[in-house]
Design a binder for these strands. Structure first.
Lengths: 189, 189
DNA sequence: TCGTTTGCCTAAGAGGGCTAGGCTACTACC
DNA sequence: GGTAGTAGCCTAGCCCTCTTAGGCAAACGA
């Protein structure tokens, strides 16, 4: 069996899969080199350093998630779109815990601006068109939405919700109901 | 100047401070040993391993935050209490980014149950008394509140809000307004 | 006083990150 | 087809961290 050629893309993908299996913190240049049947040092021809690898994984994840969300959003509006966005987000995080964790590392500003992160922001704003919010309420609402999604998903992952018997799926859909309600009736100052 | 005696408590505190300065991921047994003027291996008399150290830092942070929140909550109710809780939470996270990050590692279930995490849950439920929610709405609301707080704070820290000029403080207080509104008028099924 | 415990030490091995420098085989061009 | 360049890998080697094993000395308790 011939080994697949080592390229940055393959390394990134393998790293992402490794992250989902063993956690980002265990995605190591050495482990990746072993997987490719190559010496650690050789990978530095393709990667700047270990951090570079993790950034690439983060960017891959951001792009993948943006694609999913875009697909989920197609043809939907209003609360329907809100729920579709939210579920696509949460499902991705659960299917790809390592990739999701990788997304949380801070990118330097320039990198962030060219990442799929901007697509996320655009899509979130698109949803809000259904709720007819104008600036600066729209920005505030975008931030609250992201906060709720990310917060819920990450607390769920770290097990903060395990202490209460209530199924998290139920809390999730009720949270989305609440979010929809508050977006529909955004409080004025 | 005589060196302070090495104890688990001192190690944990020093680790927490180191975390705030250089990030949890850089809180290393070796670095701590250097700070105490002692060899790395000697610390294993006090600590089980590196993970043990981080867990202790997390528990310290949880307890500190619970104390702060409790103090902020004293004598307040309703939205007043909500805002006090939220601000205490966010302020702590900003003053102690490393400690806050440490809080996010998952504790094994038994440890979690004896941690200050349960105090957080109790205090959150106490706030909700002002909003007269009954189960299971209360649990859902608790989860949504935590999600919003944690999500906002962690997105703010990783710089996800930097792309928009709107001051995050403003979005924060508007988010709390929205949260208050939705708790006041929690949607029925 | 004489264990026993406490608290540190040295030695040593397993990994991981990364740099420097070298070899090979393919590619492009004349 | 010969030759220069370069892509892609390798070895050697250094530093750091984590962790175990075993030893030694001082404080402490009976």
């Amino acid at each position: 069996m011939a080994r697949a050629k080592v390229t940055v893309e393959r390394l990134t993908l393998a790293g992402a899969e490794l992250a989902d299996e063993v956690g980002v913190e265990n995605v190591t240049v050495a482990a990746l080199a072993r997987q490719f049947g190559v010496k650690d040092a050789s990978l530095y021809f393709h990667l700047k350093n270990a951090h570079d690898l993790r950034v690439r994984i983060a960017l891959l994840a951001l792009a993948e998630l943006a694609d999913r969300v875009a697909a989920a959003l197609a043809g939907r509006a209003g609360k329907d779109a809100l729920v579709a966005f939210a579920n696509a987000y949460r499902d991705y995080a659960r299917e790809h815990p390592g990739r999701y964790a990788a997304m949380q590392i801070d990118l330097d500003p320039e990198t962030a601006l060219t990442s799929a992160g901007v697509r996320h922001a655009e899509m979130t704003r698109a949803i809000l068109r259904g709720y007819r919010l104008s600036e600066p309420d729209q920005t505030d609402a975008v931030r609250m939405m992201h906060s709720t999604f990310h917060g819920f998903v990450s607390l769920e992952k770290t097990g903060s919700f395990r202490h209460t018997p209530r199924p998290t799926d139920d809390s999730w859909s009720r949270t989305l109901d609440a979010l929809d309600a508050v977006l529909t009736n955004w409080p004025s100052r």
